[in-house]
Design a protein around this nucleic acid. Structure first.
Lengths: 357, 357
DNA sequence: GTGAAAGCGCTAACAT
DNA sequence: ATGTTAGCGCTTTCAC
């Protein structure tokens, strides 16, 4: 007994009611802020609540209501800064509206994604923010559709015919990167892409390529389509640079379309003793704390995480509250931070305009 | 109407009951796996379930039960690899036992921590895994105590008189770092610590210092007690090294007791053109992906995240199921990975410093 | 073996 | 302005 706290029963609405000498319904009204209660009685209720330490049980409350005040969030992972911040932000926004956010990680598996979704459906969540593993055409979105769930798709999506979508404007950001690199004189650029996730990474690649070619038709763009795992990716890059070194030709800049690609590219440069930006320039899609703090700081496309979260929640609550109309597809503009890792080719020491916090 | 999915009412246990020609009670038993149901009836129930796509509503189910099958998890933040992995792991373990994990971030605020806890108490969670912002003596633990909540404390804790605790064995790991550095010949070492969080960081410092002094009584250990934010920390380190450079003496190794310290220390080295391990060695408490992929890779104390999560959940469920006895305090052993950032002092070009790469 | 009845803690009609 | 009634969807005695 010593080290086992008795789970004392918490006071229920009836306990409050009898202490205050009113009915449970009246207590319920007072708690809900209904103004038609006689001030005198309201005060007695408040006193009883205070005295007993009463708090409404949100589950019981939701039970009786039509919609439950729970929002589900499904992220591909929790381990990265981006999704970590996203969950934090979504949580905060849900809270502001009196909802509880229940977050789950699909761990980059579409099968698990659907399982989680089914569980959230069991919970009768009011709505779901889904960051799909692959894209908007996966089984999870289909499940939501089939079951009439309310939801928003974010991040690895472009647009959908059933759900609102919110994501970073990858194409525009990549076009800006192209302008920067071409403008600095780069004419041989390696783009490190990702095999899966089709649409969104494809938009980054296309946005970059079309703009680069328009500005400099003679530019050479190599593409390495990588795996998600670090090791195979490292091998691919090693191969690529190995060949290039032999042929005497190697790119003067690298644009990585995803975070791990940036990490591995940088690591490969260091292994070969190439310094940024003198020997090679580097820009990555997606920012991370270490990139701004390492030396030289690595240029990055910063996704507007707060806008994405904010607009996603806005759209979701609009639907929850009955908003109709065709789905909207938002593309949020990114910031491109040209930090010290980018310079002009064959130009010696160069200071980029990047910001170091 | 076009773009608004009708929220078709989901089948309830009564729908299943009437389709199967039995009572709701029987359906409930079948769903719970009770064996005393006539196989024939059980089959009819299964068929009806299949046909209607019935699934138990976990909230309604919990409503009637004594304990709700929800576990709360409160982390100081979601943005770091460590806590991201921790949540993922806890989620997975809770799931395995048929519980749902509801995670929330205290965003490094003790006030928010208590608020979240109160909300979780409102939810009547079966138990809580709390990674406190500061340590085990904060208001959150007090709240749990006062309200008879079941819980486990992890990470920034040593031991508690009311709750089981699980954390990394900081002291032992730091002692090992000391052995390594002293063994390699370092006799002037800077330790970068953290002002807050007392106990746990203090254990790291003490573990390091006592072992280092035992092995080499003449060792000089400087300590910079830092802030949590990057900017002040950077300034502090800049000051420290500025002085050292003037006096002609600077440490041959740095041991950072927390992740951001490692990041900033490394950044400061790069800014000054010092290379690891020739000019200075670096070890950090806590590992991150970029540390193993950057060049040279940064030596790190790796916290046994899986063990911490596993033992925390084990302890928690033991208490939930009524386990009694005095609280246990687990210290999980860390791994110390001596990567390329560590070498022997005065072993390579010891550039006077100041000039960038 | 099975089902009727009684709630879990709350809220929403509907009376009064 | 307030109380009564009737559930939300489920589980659990406790008779039969």
């Amino acid at each position: 007994m010593a080290h086992r706290q008795a789970q004392q029963r918490r006071p229920s609405i009836h306990d409050v009611a009898s202490r205050a000498g009113v009915s449970a319904a009246t207590v319920s009204k007072v708690m809900a802020g209904v103004t038609t209660v006689k001030p005198e009685n309201a005060q007695r209720v408040f006193d009883a609540v205070e005295l007993l330490g009463y708090r409404v049980d949100p589950l019981a409350s939701d039970m009786r209501r039509a919609k439950r005040r729970i929002i589900g969030a499904i992220m591909p992972e929790f381990e990265s800064e981006f999704f970590g911040q996203m969950v934090t932000q979504l949580e905060s926004l849900a809270e502001q509206r009196g909802y509880t956010l229940v977050a789950a990680s699909s761990r980059e598996s579409e099968a698990r994604e659907t399982e989680i979704l089914a569980r959230m459906h069991d919970w009768r969540v009011a709505g779901v923010v889904l960051a799909p593993v692959r894209n908007e055409h996966g089984p999870a979105a289909a499940f939501m559709k089939a079951n009439g769930m309310t939801g928003v798709l974010i991040d690895r999506v472009l647009s959908d015919d059933a759900f609102d979508t919110v994501s970073a404007d990858s194409a525009a950001a990549s076009a800006e990167v192209a302008r920067e690199l071409i403008g600095k004189g780069h004419r041989h650029i390696l783009v490190v892409g990702l095999g899966e996730q089709a649409a969104t990474v494809r938009a980054r690649l296309d946005g970059f390529r079309s703009t680069a070619l328009k500005l400099a038709p003679d530019v050479r763009i190599d593409v390495v389509l990588a795996e998600t795992d670090v090791e195979p990716l490292r091998a691919q890059l090693r191969d690529y640079f190995g060949q290039g070194a032999n042929g005497g030709e190697r790119p003067t800049a690298v644009y990585s379309l995803f975070l791990k690609g940036t990490l591995v590219a940088l690591s490969e440069f260091r292994r070969r003793g190439w310094h940024c930006p003198n020997d090679i320039s580097l820009v990555g899609f997606d920012d991370a704390e270490w990139m701004q703090v390492t030396w030289p700081a690595i240029a990055a496309v910063v996704q507007p995480m707060r806008q994405i979260a904010g607009h996603a929640m806005e759209a979701l609550f609009a639907r929850i509250e009955g908003g109709e109309g065709p789905p909207i597809a938002r593309l949020e503009p990114c910031k491109v931070l040209m930090r010290e890792s980018v310079g002009s080719p064959g130009n010696g020491p160069h200071s980029g305009g990047g910001d170091r916090q």
